[in-house]
Amino acid sequence: MSATVTYQLTRNSYGRLVLTDQSGVTHEGVIPVRSFPVTDPGQGIALIDSHGHELAWIERFDDLPEAYRVLIESELASREFMPEIKRITKVSGFITPSTWHVETDRGAAVLILKGEENIRRLTASSLMITDNHGIHFLLRDRTALDRHSRKLLDHFL
């Protein structure tokens, strides 16, 4: 696909994304949203206005001009929060609620697992763990964890 788009995208001084469409109408506070944040993050990104209406659809990032891609990616980065667990260092106990000390791609964190039902199986090897505040932690591949983490995790599966 060609890198042509029919709208303009900028960031204003309030830190909001502004989209100007073909007819010159500007929308402030535009939000990029991934359609498949877990299963296929790169596919299908929608630009949504502040009322929740879709303004534009981006099939793949490659379809975008470089500048827009950077803009959208930075906005996504500041909105998306799904830390990926790389290591489980310690768990307080094998009975829930249990406090986990984990290392994620966003630094070390502590999460409280309220019940085993908060561990959701996405595929055979990937898991989504929801903590007591509703933050989702992703475990992309549990077979790739180190032995210690795997052993700790195994108690909860």
Binding site: S78, E80, F81, P83, R106, G107
Partner: peptide
């Protein structure tokens, strides 16, 4: 408990 890039801090 988070920084601007949403890393734990």
């Amino acid at each position: 408990d988070l920084d601007h890039q949403l890393h734990f801090a």
